[in-house]
Design a binder for these strands. Structure first.
Lengths: 210, 210
DNA sequence: TTTACTATTGACCGGCCGGCCAGTTCATTG
DNA sequence: CAATGAACTGGCCGGCCGGTCAATAGTAAA
């Protein structure tokens, strides 16, 4: 992957790979226990390097934390932007697919979900800043669909996006919380029910008086 | 409040009040920074007592954390149960009022919101266990409304409850996250839009075939 | 081969952590 | 008025924290 020249695998030192191993171990630990409860020593041990080496590559614990979040967000934004741009026109089915895609993404990336949850709690704003572009794009799609009469036009398009983003996100963030509720269904069953309510709730008013 | 006998206010020692002051300081700090990032020394300083005294009254940091969460949950459950039981029959307007009440509660108790968010992340199950009773009660109400033909019957009642609980909760938990989204409205505006979508989405099917 | 640079190590630092303990002060009770 | 026990204090402990630094080892350029 990052093999410079034709250097064979005899190369003992590979700083890129080292950084990657550190980031990976840091991600696992930060995701599990949050920033404050993780010791640099643990990260060092889990990644098979010295604590000093982490400082050499990343500078400080804070900087490593920031780098971890940025790496996670790159993954997140990359896939999301892809989903959003490859779809072309706006109709109900597009929104359904958008919700399903977002839901599936969170389902497949539980680490990202938890990492962002920690970030929210420490009032990290960079995640929110970064995806405001995605939201703008999505809201524009909704607005177009409202103008075409596909969706009701008496709701703020941003709130439509927010509603499903919030629902999907919190479903996974607080899974351990509501998974013990009696009678609650699987991921798929909840998604299906939510889509019924959400999409029918967005249908245009039946009696457009005035 | 907790004045035993007719003891005047000259009483220097008041262990109940002391415990309360410790709990209050602990709540503020835990809410702000989470369990791991709070030092017993800070709690001691903020509550005006010695670190040793906290250990005397609560035993350990973990125990204090647990006591803090339990106190918060008592407040939460008390008000929620009150809202749920004082309402009698089930109709659309009842659900609307339920959602509004829940939303307003979270709006008025940001500390509880954040405390529970920390608890979720450390996979604390006791919060979820405790309110499963509330959910059961709410779901039963929805089921009755479905039988009466007030709501669509093709969705799991628990998922109806879950949907609005999740939405309200995450709206406040991740406020710092989406407050920077361009075009997003105030608490009230979002609530209004969500209610439109949610309640209309719950209306019975228009063509009840079969 | 020499040089220069960077990746990597292990030992070490001051400081803060949660918890403990011996002692003091207060309030109740017999 | 003792005296008993709980509330409360200050000081101390071992241990872990993030971070630093001088020294070493590998690597690529000259």
């Amino acid at each position: 992957m990052s093999a410079k020249q034709n250097q064979p695998s005899t190369s003992i030192r590979d700083p890129d790979a080292t950084r990657q191993r550190i980031l990976s171990a840091a991600l696992d630990l930060f995701v599990e226990k949050g920033f404050a409860d993780v010791a640099m020593r643990q990260i060092a041990e889990n990644s098979g390097v010295t604590k000093s080496l982490i400082h050499h590559h990343f500078g400080s614990k804070e900087a490593l934390w920031k780098a971890t979040k940025e790496a996670a967000f790159e993954l997140y934004a990359g896939l999301q932007r892809q989903d959003l741009t490859e779809a072309e026109q706006s109709d109900e089915d597009l929104l359904r697919r958008g919700v399903v895609n977002y839901f599936k993404f969170l389902q497949n990336h539980p680490k990202v979900v938890r990492l962002f949850a920690w970030a929210h709690l420490e009032r990290d704003t960079c995640v929110g800043e970064n995806d405001s572009g995605l939201v703008r794009l999505g809201a524009e799609r909704i607005r177009q669909a409202q103008e075409s009469g596909i969706f009701r036009s008496d709701v703020n398009p941003v709130h439509v996006i927010t509603t499903f983003v919030i629902t999907c996100t919190h479903w996974f963030e607080a899974r351990s919380h509501h998974s013990q509720w009696e009678g609650i269904g699987s991921d798929q069953e909840f998604l299906d029910d939510f889509l019924k309510i959400f999409l029918d709730g967005l249908k245009p008013e039946h009696v457009p008086e005035r």
